[in-house]
Design a protein around this nucleic acid. Structure first.
Lengths: 149, 149
DNA sequence: CTCTATGCAAATCTTTTGCACGAAC
DNA sequence: GTTCGTGCAAAAGATTTGCATAGAG
C-alpha cells in the first residue's frame, strides 16, 4: 500500500532520527532532514556523492561538503554506518538491525547478511584477542555468486 | 640466528616470487625485487607510501607510481593482498597463509587472525548466498582490547 | 632490437579545512 | 543575539594516466 508515496512512509523514521540529533545538541536543518530521508528511502549502500544527488533533487543548493559533515556527525552518533568497498568511495546507510556485509571484489556489489552469521567469529575474536567485532561496519571481501565462476 | 641480516633471510622468498612474476611474462627489475623484499621483510600491513620509503632506502630514485603499478600487478597475480582500513590509504602485504584481519576503528591497528576463525561464516555465506569469502582480503571492523573500554 | 617498466608531470577522485555569511534556537 | 550550519574555494591525500625514455630479455 501507499505505493505511490515511498518517501512519506519514512517520515516518522526521519523525525525520530532528527529528534535523536537534537538530543545531542545538533540543530534540525532542511539539509539534514533531506539527507536522513535519502538514507531512509534508499535501501542500498550509497556514496556521499549519490546521497548529495538525492538531496539535491529536492534542494538543489546543497553542497557536498554539507553531506560529508553531516555523515561524519551521523556516524559519530551511530545513526549511520560507513563501509569502504574494495574500490571507490565509502558508502553509508542507516545503522539498522545488526548485520554485516559481503563485498564482491569483482563487481563491487555489497550484500547485507544477518549479524548472527558473525556469531562464531565474534566469540573467537573476543575470547582470543579481546577484540569486539562490529559486523555492521565490516565488509567481508570475496566473490559473489555471479562472479564466482 | 642471523639476527644481523634480516633482509638476507628472505632472499629465497623474493626470488621465488620474482620467478612467479616472470612466469607471467613480467620482467625482473630492481624496483620489483626491492618491493618484494620490503613486503617480505616487514611483517605488518604497509601503505604504498611506506613501501616506497622502504624501497627508496636502497634505491632512492624509485617513484611512487612504480610502487602502485607493481602492487596492482602483484595483487592481480595474487602475490599480495590489499586491505582498506577504516581510515587512511590501502595497505598491502604478502598473501601468505590463509588469514583474516581485525581492524580497530579507534586506533586503526590491524591484527592478523587465523583463517579458520572464518570457517563458520564462510560456510554460511556460501550455502545461503553463493558467496565465496576471501578472509585474507577482508577487514572485520571493531574495537581492539586496548580501545574497547 | 623489441617490448616492457619507469620517471615525471599532470589529472582525477575522494575527502577535509578555512573563512565569511546565513539560519536555528 | 549567540552559536551552529552551510556554501564556496582551496587544500590535502590517495591513486591513476599520458608520454617519452631507459632498461630487460
Amino acid at each position: 500500500m501507499a505505493r505511490q508515496a515511498p518517501a512519506a512512509e519514512h517520515d516518522d523514521i526521519v523525525e525520530s532520527l532528527v529528534a535523536r540529533m537534537r538530543a545531542h545538541g545538533d540543530r534540525a536543518t532542511p539539509a539534514r532532514r533531506l539527507l536522513l530521508q535519502a538514507l531512509a528511502d534508499k535501501p542500498g549502500h550509497l556514496s556521499a556523492e549519490k546521497l548529495a544527488a538525492e538531496v539535491r533533487a529536492r534542494a538543489p543548493g546543497v553542497n557536498i561538503t554539507t553531506i560529508y559533515r553531516n555523515l561524519y556527525e551521523l556516524e559519530r552518533l551511530k545513526v549511520v554506518d560507513r563501509t569502504r568497498p574494495v574500490h571507490g568511495p565509502a558508502t553509508y546507510h542507516l545503522a539498522s538491525a545488526a548485520h554485516g556485509h559481503l563485498a564482491c571484489a569483482e563487481c563491487g556489489t555489497v550484500t547485507e547478511i544477518p549479524g548472527r552469521l558473525f556469531a562464531s567469529l565474534a566469540s573467537q575474536a573476543s575470547a582470543q584477542y579481546g577484540f569486539v567485532i562490529e559486523p555492521h561496519r565490516s565488509a567481508v571481501v570475496g566473490l559473489c555468486s555471479g562472479c564466482r565462476r
